[in-house]
C-alpha cells in the first residue's frame, strides 16, 4: 500500500507554545519555603538528634563507636525478652485446693532449693539460709493465659465491628445526599460522622474506662464508635456514587425510596461494603491490642501490666501472639475479599 507521510511541519503550524513547566521561579520559591519549614520542624521533632543516635548505633554495631545509647537500651530489653515466657511456676504451699493425684494437664511438681539472704538482728550480719520449696510447674501456663487474652481481644474487635456496622447503616442512609430525608437530617448525620471520626480510639477508650471501668466494655464501645464514623462516611459515599440508571428506572415506576435503595443501589455497593467492613475488622483487631494499654480489656491490658513490671520475657510471648494473629487475619481477609468481589 502506498502511504504518504504526513508533511512536517504541517501547514500553519506555530511553535510559540509550550506545556506547563514545573521549574519556574514560583516553584523554586515554594521549594525553598518547604525546606525552611522542614528545617525548623525537624529541629523541634529532634530529627537531628535521631540521625546522630542512629549513626552512633550503626557505628557501634560495626565496631566504630564504643558506646551507643540506642544499642544499649535495645540489647538490655532484647536480652531480657529472651527466652519468651511460656510457663508458670507457683508455690504448692500457696495452692490450697491442689489435688496431688490429679494435676492439671502437662503440669508437674518440682522441688527446688530456695536460697534466701537475710539480716540477723543479733549479729547484724547477713546470713544465708536455704529451704526446700515445692513448685507447681505448668510449661504452657502463660501461653494459655495469653491465648485467652488474645481471644478476648478478637472478641472485642468483632463486637466493636458489629456495633459500628449497626450504627453506621442508618448514619449512611441519612448522610447520603440522594436518600436523606431533608437538609436537617443530612447535616445531622454528616456532623455525627465527622465527630465520630475525629475521636481517636485510644482517647475515647481512656474516657470510657472512666465511665464503664476497666475491661472489654470500654474497648468495644471505643472501637465501635470510631469505626461507625468511618463506615458511615464510606457507605454513604458509595450510595451517592452508585450508578444512577437503575435507580431512575425504579423511581420512574414509583417504587419508593427504601425499595429503590434495596434493588437499585445495594447490589452495586455490597461488595465494596464487605471490603470496608473487613478492613475495619482487621484494623479493630490491631487497635484492640493497643487500647488495652489504657485498660480497655484484652491482650493490651496484659501487655501493659507485664511491661510495667519489667517482665520482658512475658512481653515477648504477647508480641509473638499479636504477630501471629495479625498475620493470620491478613491471610483470612485477603482470601475472603478475593472470593466475594
Amino acid at each position: 500500500m502506498d502511504i504518504k507521510p504526513i508533511p512536517v511541519p504541517a501547514q500553519g503550524t506555530t511553535l510559540d507554545w509550550q506545556l506547563d513547566q514545573p521549574y519556574r521561579a514560583k516553584h523554586l520559591l515554594l521549594l525553598l519555603l518547604v525546606l525552611a519549614v522542614l528545617l525548623f520542624t525537624g529541629h523541634r521533632t529532634e530529627m537531628d538528634k535521631m540521625v546522630v543516635m542512629t549513626g552512633q548505633a550503626v557505628g557501634n554495631l560495626v565496631g566504630l563507636a564504643d558506646d551507643s545509647q540506642v544499642v544499649r537500651g535495645l540489647s538490655r530489653v532484647g536480652a531480657s525478652m529472651w527466652p519468651p515466657a511460656f510457663g508458670t511456676e507457683e508455690e504448692v504451699a500457696r495452692l490450697t485446693d491442689l489435688d496431688r493425684d490429679q494435676l492439671p494437664f502437662l503440669a508437674k511438681i518440682e522441688t527446688r532449693e530456695k536460697v534466701e539472704q537475710h539480716l540477723n538482728p543479733d549479729t547484724l550480719e547477713m546470713e544465708t539460709s536455704s529451704e526446700k520449696v515445692e513448685l507447681l510447674i505448668k510449661p504452657l501456663g502463660y501461653a494459655w493465659t495469653v491465648f485467652i487474652k488474645m481471644l478476648e481481644t478478637i472478641e472485642i474487635a468483632i463486637w466493636g465491628t458489629l456495633f459500628s456496622v449497626v450504627l453506621s447503616i442508618p448514619l449512611a442512609w441519612f448522610a447520603a445526599r440522594n436518600y436523606t430525608v431533608n437538609h436537617f437530617t443530612y447535616t445531622l448525620a454528616r456532623g455525627t460522622i465527622s465527630l465520630l471520626r475525629s475521636m481517636p480510639e485510644l482517647i475515647v477508650a481512656l474516657f470510657l474506662v472512666l465511665a464503664y471501668g476497666f475491661g472489654p466494655i470500654a474497648g468495644v464501645l471505643a472501637l465501635g464508635l470510631h469505626a461507625a464514623g468511618f463506615l458511615g462516611k464510606f457507605y454513604a459515599e458509595d450510595i451517592e456514587n452508585a450508578d444512577k440508571k437503575p435507580q431512575e428506572a425504579l423511581e420512574a415506576i414509583g417504587a419508593g425510596k427504601l425499595k429503590t435503595l434495596w434493588y437499585g443501589v445495594m447490589p452495586q455497593v455490597v461488595p465494596q461494603y464487605i471490603a470496608y467492613t473487613l478492613y475495619i475488622l482487621d484494623r479493630n483487631v490491631r487497635m484492640a491490642t493497643v487500647i488495652g494499654l489504657v485498660g480497655a480489656g484484652g491482650i493490651g491490658q496484659e501487655l501493659k501490666g507485664r511491661f510495667d513490671m519489667f517482665q520482658y520475657d512475658h512481653v515477648a510471648t504477647i508480641l509473638i501472639a499479636i504477630f501471629i494473629v495479625v498475620f493470620l487475619l491478613d491471610q483470612f481477609s485477603a482470601r475472603l475479599r478475593a472470593k466475594l468481589i
Binding site: 428506572a249 414509583g254 429503590t260 434493588y263 447490589p267 452495586q268 461488595p271
Partner: peptide, 25 residues
C-alpha cells in the same frame, strides 16, 4: 412504564430480580 436507552438494569442483580423489580410499587 419506561424503557430506557441504556437499559437501566441493576447489573449485579439476577435477571429474575431485575424483572421482579418491575413490581416493586
Amino acid at each position: 412504564a419506561m424503557i430506557h436507552q441504556h437499559f437501566n438494569l441493576t447489573l449485579r442483580m439476577s435477571v429474575a430480580a431485575n424483572v421482579l423489580a418491575g413490581l416493586l410499587p
